[in-house]
Amino acid sequence: MNAFQTAAERLIQADASHTPCEPLRDLIGEADQIAAYRVQEMVTQARLDAGRRIVGRKIGLTSRAVQAQLGVGSPDHGALLDDMAYADREPIPLSRFLQPRVEAEVAFVLDRDLDVEMANVADVIRATAFVLPAIEVVDSRITDWDIRVTDTIADNASGGAFVLGTTPRALSEVDLPAIGMAIETADQVVSTGAGVACLGSPVAAVVWLARALATQETPLRAGDVILSGALGPVVPVTTPGSFCARLSGLGQVSAVFTQGEDA
C-alpha cells in the first residue's frame, strides 16, 4: 500500500469508526496539493463505489485570514455528495459528525455547463440558474482540527453536510458583495459577515472553481450545486440545537441538529 492509499484508508477508517485520525501530512507532506487532491479523489471514489453520487462542489479557504493561517494563497475545493444534502429545517443527526462547525454561504445552482478552462464572471453569471442561502456543516476527520492545507484538501476540503434554503433568487436581483450575514442560535448572534469576505464576491469564488475544475478535466455541469465559501467565522456545534443564517437579500436558512442516529 503506497502513501496515497494509506492516507485515504486513514480517512475512510476515521469516518467509519467515528474516531478522528492523526494528520495526513506525515504521509503526503504539508504543501503537496496535487498529492492531497489525489487522496481526496480516492476517498470520494470509495463513496461513489458504495452508491453515492456527486451533486456539486464546495469551495473552501476563501478567507484571506485562513489562507494565511495555512500558508496558502488560494482556495481549495471538495465534492458534494447526495447524502450530504439537507433541506431547510430538516433534522440533522449530530451523531453523523465528528467535530462539526457551521458557516453561512451563498449556494449557486447551475443550468449550464462551465467547461471552459478560462471561465470569466460573465460565464458564471450566464450559467447560474439561481442562488440560495445555505449553511455548510464543515467537519474534520483529523483529531482536534489539527490541519494544514494538505490535510483539509485530502479530507474533502473538510466537508460534512450542507443545508439549502428555499428562496431562490436570480443573480440580477442580489448585490452579492454587499449582502450581510448573521448566524443566530438560542437567540444570540454568533457569527457575522458579508459577501465581500468571500474573495471579494461569491461570483469570483465560483470563477476560481470553474477554472480549477476545468483544468482537472472534471468541469462543473448543469444541475450542480456550488457552495461558494464562508461569509464569516465558523461556529462550533457541540449540542443539539438550531442555527439560523440570515443573508440580506437572499432570505434565511436553518440547520437543526438532533440527538438522533443517522439513517
Score class of each variant (00 low, 15 high):
residue 144 D to Y: 01
residue 235 V to F: 03
residue 257 F to K: 09
residue 138 V to A: 13
residue 133 P to K: 06
residue 239 T to C: 08
residue 259 Q to P: 01
residue 39 V to Y: 06
residue 210 A to D: 09
residue 189 V to S: 12
residue 121 V to H: 07
residue 222 A to H: 05
residue 231 L to N: 13
residue 144 D to T: 05
residue 195 G to A: 10
residue 159 G to Q: 01
residue 139 D to I: 04
residue 66 V to F: 03
residue 233 P to D: 15
residue 210 A to M: 11
residue 254 S to W: 06
residue 128 T to K: 04
residue 131 V to A: 00
residue 215 T to G: 14
residue 263 A to E: 09
residue 183 I to Y: 06
residue 188 Q to F: 08
residue 248 S to I: 06
residue 129 A to Y: 09
residue 118 M to G: 09
residue 209 L to N: 05
residue 77 H to E: 14
residue 195 G to C: 13
residue 91 P to D: 10
residue 6 T to P: 10
residue 137 V to H: 00
residue 45 Q to T: 11
residue 125 I to V: 11
residue 52 R to N: 14
residue 155 D to W: 01
residue 256 V to A: 10
residue 26 D to R: 11
residue 132 L to M: 04
residue 194 A to F: 09
residue 244 C to I: 09
residue 166 T to H: 07
residue 166 T to V: 12
residue 169 R to M: 08
residue 166 T to I: 13
residue 24 L to H: 07
residue 213 L to K: 02
residue 57 R to G: 06
residue 184 E to W: 00
residue 261 E to T: 14
residue 75 P to K: 00
residue 153 I to W: 03
residue 5 Q to S: 15
residue 1 M to V: 02
residue 250 L to G: 04
residue 154 A to M: 06
residue 220 L to D: 02
residue 40 Q to G: 14
residue 47 R to L: 05
residue 5 Q to E: 15
residue 117 E to Q: 10
residue 86 Y to S: 11
residue 144 D to G: 07
residue 213 L to V: 01
residue 170 A to K: 15
residue 140 S to E: 05
residue 190 V to H: 00
residue 65 A to S: 11
residue 6 T to K: 15
residue 8 A to H: 04
residue 189 V to L: 08
residue 21 C to T: 07
residue 3 A to G: 12
residue 211 R to L: 13
residue 131 V to F: 07
residue 43 V to D: 01
residue 92 I to R: 00
residue 168 P to F: 04
residue 104 A to K: 10
residue 182 A to Q: 10
residue 210 A to F: 14
residue 182 A to G: 07
residue 117 E to K: 07
residue 246 R to C: 03
residue 204 A to I: 06
residue 234 V to Y: 04
residue 117 E to R: 08
residue 75 P to L: 03
residue 105 E to T: 06
residue 178 A to Y: 08
residue 194 A to N: 06
residue 3 A to F: 13
residue 7 A to F: 04
residue 126 R to G: 13
residue 244 C to D: 08
residue 68 A to W: 07
residue 129 A to V: 13
residue 7 A to I: 05
residue 226 I to M: 06
residue 133 P to T: 14
residue 84 M to L: 14
residue 90 E to V: 09
residue 39 V to R: 04
residue 249 G to D: 03
residue 261 E to C: 12
residue 85 A to D: 04
residue 122 A to L: 11
residue 91 P to H: 09
residue 230 A to C: 08
residue 48 L to R: 13
residue 243 F to H: 15
residue 251 G to K: 02
residue 230 A to Y: 01
residue 25 R to M: 04
residue 97 F to L: 12
residue 71 G to F: 03
residue 183 I to H: 10
residue 161 A to P: 01
residue 148 R to W: 11
residue 101 R to K: 13
residue 91 P to M: 04
residue 131 V to C: 01
residue 69 Q to G: 13
residue 12 I to R: 03
residue 223 G to H: 15
residue 130 F to V: 03
residue 228 S to Y: 02
residue 139 D to E: 12
residue 173 E to S: 10
residue 143 T to G: 07
residue 248 S to Y: 08
residue 154 A to Y: 03
